[in-house]
């Protein structure tokens, strides 16, 4: 027998946890599923400076834990480190099988699975993942004490995580495909002024090279087409995200970009199925915009459940 909930939220990032706070406070039986610990991308962000209510910087991991604690205070159950091994979201009662065992179901589901780091798709990337290539500065930064490392990308994540990495590394060389940063001006200027940070503009990685561990990064200047190999102790990749839409493929329309289309109330064309946060087609993906989506999705789900009674 599947255990019955009113709302099942998939993804415990800012959107999903906010949806859970609202749903649980509305006395809906609420379950949140996540394949990791709560927090989504926020949990591996070393500091958050622009989330309202925190006049000083807050660690991403602390903010994430606070979101989860708040949702649990109102009675939401957060299932951590689970894997969805089967799902059927098309019908009036949506079902999930968890870890090849437990079954859960609910008439309303909010998919807030967000996005994951984009792979570069260049030779050697798979081989050196965890062997010199990293996607998480807080996880691996401290091991590069006194080392010379490279960061790929030029957006907010790339620039801010580069600044974080300067605490440990001897030099941080940012390789960016354009000739200016896309990051917010404040952090872009801070990076350019930091004596440990160097920037190679107009260049893209072409290969990761090494015997057993990563030794060199091959880059190409996209304007001059000059190819160079740089000795490196480690490479951190922050080149944007791709949406996690596995649960929704074939069920709801996806935009050409791969993101999910919803209406203003976060509803998909499937009754009772909502999407919130970074997974949606939207112009800006911030913690604050994810939180807004989660709020709206929970309120819309609450209305949906009320109307169908």
């Amino acid at each position: 027998m599947a255990e019955r909930y009113d709302v099942i939220v998939v993804g415990a990032g800012p959107a999903g946890l906010t949806a859970a706070i609202y749903a649980a406070r509305a006395r809906l039986r609420t379950l949140v599923l996540d394949e990791s610990i709560p927090g989504g991308q926020v949990k591996t962000t070393h500091k958050v400076s622009n989330y309202p209510g925190f006049p000083e910087d807050v660690k991403g991991s602390e903010l994430a834990a606070a979101f989860a604690k708040q949702a649990e205070r109102f009675g939401a159950r957060i299932a951590r480190a689970i894997e969805i091994t089967k799902h059927d979201l098309g019908g009036p009662l949506k079902r999930f099988e968890l870890d090849e065992g437990e079954e859960v179901e609910a008439p309303a589901v909010i998919v807030a699975t967000g996005a994951k780091p984009r792979d570069l798709g260049v030779p050697g990337e798979t081989k050196f993942k965890g062997g010199g290539i990293s996607y998480c500065a807080t996880c691996d930064g401290a091991y590069f004490e006194g080392k010379d490392i490279h960061v790929i990308g030029g957006g907010n994540s790339a620039v801010e995580e580069s600044l974080f990495l300067t605490q440990f590394a001897r030099t941080v060389t940012i390789v960016h495909q354009l000739d200016t940063f896309q990051a917010e001006p404040a952090s872009a200027q801070e990076a350019l002024a930091n004596p440990k940070v160097r920037v190679i503009w107009d260049s893209e990685p072409r290969a990761f090279l090494g015997e057993t561990s990563l030794e060199k990064l091959r880059i190409e200047n996209v304007k001059t087409h000059e190819v160079r190999e740089l000795a490196t102790d480690g490479v951190f990749v922050f080149i944007g995200m791709v949406p996690r839409t596995d649960l929704l493929k074939g069920l709801v329309p996806l935009a050409a970009s791969g993101y999910v289309e919803t209406d203003e109330s976060m509803a998909t064309p499937v009754p009772g199925l909502f999407a919130a946060g970074d997974i949606r087609v939207k112009r800006f993906r911030q913690i604050t915009t994810a939180v807004a989506d989660g709020t709206i999705a929970a309120l819309a789900a609450q209305r949906f459940l009320k109307d169908r009674r």
Binding site: S36, I37, D99, T138, C139
Partner: peptide
């Protein structure tokens, strides 16, 4: 490692 959310996430799966 410590301060490693992916490590924390793996731990219960590893135990299971």
């Amino acid at each position: 490692s410590t301060e490693c959310p992916p490590c924390e996430a793996l731990a219960p799966k590893f135990d299971a």
